[in-house]
Design a protein around this nucleic acid. Structure first.
Length: 565
DNA sequence: GCCGTTTTCGGCCCGACTGTTTTCAGTCG
């Protein structure tokens, strides 16, 4: 799959052209093409060979020719031409807050700035300040931007942002005058990583609401505080913004601050075509406001049904809403159990009884204990004897439990030759077999997974790509081929909900669904405190357009066992 | 460069803020 590398090429091309002062519309066209290619689940090379490039939205005559050139010759002359005399390092500087394309181009043209070093130098010696339109404040602002750029802690995983947002909402929701409050932004969309945490509130006494927010005990720094917005740092590393609006604009503001940007642009374009204007204050016909208090009304005014936040990425959700074809997305209440949990038998920290009690408290009906198998020594993998002991303990526990059931499972290693770490004789006695790769990430991963899927006792392939969010790329695996085999063998693919995995991700889950593959959410918990990650998994599933019926977890325990026979 | 229930040409999202300016350009979200 060359999708990502071509997407990157167009994104870089857009940056380079922007720096050269090319028409913003052309720049945006390239940028959009980049985004669409990044999101594409089909293989660009296949579409190319079938002559279907122009069927991709945002790809027309010019861009399809450039893709063709790149795929046939290995280079794109437009890119080479546009980036001549411009290095990667210069383009990277567009990421500095307060330094936009115009200013950067000026610094490049007049002062020969090529990278961060140069930029710091021309600030230090006052050369930048002497350029037209530059003043003391702007320089100061750029210096701040450089500071942030260098720290660049980047985005935090969703699993870290969610508890912070919940805690803040909990802490201020009973504030006097507050009528509505909700997380917004990428967190509300359940994107896998989150930049700043955005929270939106509505009500009277707005100043007081902001004040109670900036005075929360875990706030370490107040960046801004007014009667419509407060901005703070939590624990010195996480920025949280609270905006407070009037109730009459809450829906429009929530829609606006939830994004995504491309989803919003699409809606505004639609509004314009209908002679309307959409902003964070509402939908207007001339000077008359026709919607704004509720999100449903904003979408309604555009002739759309309400679109769940997780879908708002301009991946076809607006068209689906227009034709009444939005999926009935899976909800947390549809999820009856967690299908991948570790106990203290292997490297977990909680006993099976503790896990069962905690899961029951979360409203679940069952959990599957899937400890590591013996090959995974580093993770305290268990052998056949320990597995038998565990089975006995689970039987005894199930005798006592009411309205809850513990399933006997295993996370069995797929070995280097594609065989499994336990014999079929052992596996067939279990309620659920989850198979995964923990070694040889570059050795025939696709073939090994396929072999595992053809074993009739294997029910689920765990974390199928092996990626760790912002830490590890993942296995060398042909995920398309894995999905295809899963469809043939009826094996489920896991949406591993552990916060730094989320694997399958949203796009792969969507692809798998389209190919008729069932999925299984498992938290991969190693203790009771991470069982809540199930909601992260539901987030991924919803972002992948999944409905309850696409997930094994929506089956009750008896139906699940029948399926796994 | 893309695209079409205003269009095959002429548009292309919206508003706030800031700083450097006498009316607006640049940047951001």
């Amino acid at each position: 799959m060359k999708n990502r590398q071509i997407a990157e090429l167009f994104e870089r091309l857009a940056d380079a052209l922007e720096l050269k002062g090319e028409s913003v519309f052309r720049v945006n066209a390239y940028r959009k093409a980049g985004r669409v290619l990044r999101d594409l689940t089909s293989d660009i090379e296949v579409l190319h060979s079938e002559g279907k490039l122009k069927e991709i939205p945002g790809i027309g005559e010019g861009i399809s020719k450039k893709i063709d050139e790149y795929l046939t010759t290995g280079k794109m002359s437009k890119y080479v031409e546009a980036t001549e005399g411009i290095g990667e390092e210069l383009l990277d500087l567009l990421g500095v807050q307060g330094l936009g394309p115009k200013t950067l181009a000026l610094a490049h043209d007049k002062l020969g700035v090529m990278n961060l070093e140069d930029l710091k130098k021309v600030i230090g010696d006052g050369a930048l300040a002497r350029l037209p339109g530059m003043g003391e404040k702007r320089i100061e602002n750029i210096v701040k931007g450089i500071d942030l750029f260098e720290k660049a802690k980047g985005r935090m995983p969703l699993g870290k942002a969610v508890p912070i947002a919940r805690e803040i909402v909990e802490a201020i929701k009973s504030e006097k005058g507050l009528k509505e409050i909700s997380p917004a932004g990428s967190l509300r969309r359940m994107a896998e990583t989150v930049g700043d945490i955005d929270i939106l509130a509505a009500g009277a006494r707005r100043l007081g609401i902001v004040k109670s927010f900036t005075q929360l005990p875990f706030v370490t720094d107040v960046l801004a505080s007014g009667d419509t917005k407060g901005s703070v740092m939590i624990d010195g590393e996480t920025q949280v913004d609270l905006r407070v609006v009037k109730r009459a604009a809450y829906g429009a503001a929530l829609q606006y601050f939830t994004g995504s940007k491309s989803h919003n642009v699409k809606l505004r374009t639609m509004a314009r075509a209908k002679g309307l204007r959409l902003s964070e204050y509402g939908i207007f016909k001339g000077a008359k406001k026709i919607a704004g208090a509720k999100e449903e009304d904003v979408y309604g005014a555009l002739g759309l049904s309400w679109i769940p936040p997780e879908l708002r990425e301009d991946r076809g959700e607006v068209e689906a809403a227009q034709s009444g074809k939005l999926p009935a997305l899976v909800e947390e209440v549809d999820i009856l159990g967690d299908l991948h949990v570790h106990s203290s038998y292997s490297d977990g920290s909680s006993s099976i009884a503790e896990l069962a009690a905690a899961a029951k408290k979360l409203g679940l009906k069952y959990i599957a204990i899937c400890d590591h198998s013996k090959y995974a020594k580093y993770a305290g993998g268990i052998d056949e004897k320990a597995l038998a002991r565990q089975a006995k303990e689970i039987d005894e526990l199930n005798e006592r439990l009411r309205g809850f059931r513990v399933l006997k499972g295993i996370e069995v290693d797929i070995l280097r030759d594609g065989s499994l770490d336990f014999t079929d004789h052992i596996l067939e006695k279990l309620d659920i077999v989850v198979a995964s790769i923990h070694s040889g990430f570059r050795q025939n991963v696709t073939q090994r997974m396929m072999r595992a899927m053809r074993n009739p006792h294997v029910d689920v392939i765990s974390h199928p790509t092996g990626r760790l969010i912002s830490r590890r790329e993942g296995y060398e695996v042909d995920i398309q081929a894995v999905i295809k085999t899963a469809a043939e063998t009826g094996t489920a693919l896991e949406i591993n909900a552990y916060y730094d995995r989320l694997d399958l991700n949203d796009l792969n889950a969507k692809k798998a669904k389209e190919m008729g593959v069932k999925m299984s959410i498992g938290t991969d918990s190693h203790g009771v405190e991470t069982l809540w990650f199930l909601s992260l998994g539901v987030g991924v599933a919803r972002r992948g357009w999944l409905e309850g019926k696409d997930l094994l977890n929506s089956l009750d325990a008896d139906d699940l066992l029948r399926r796994n026979k």
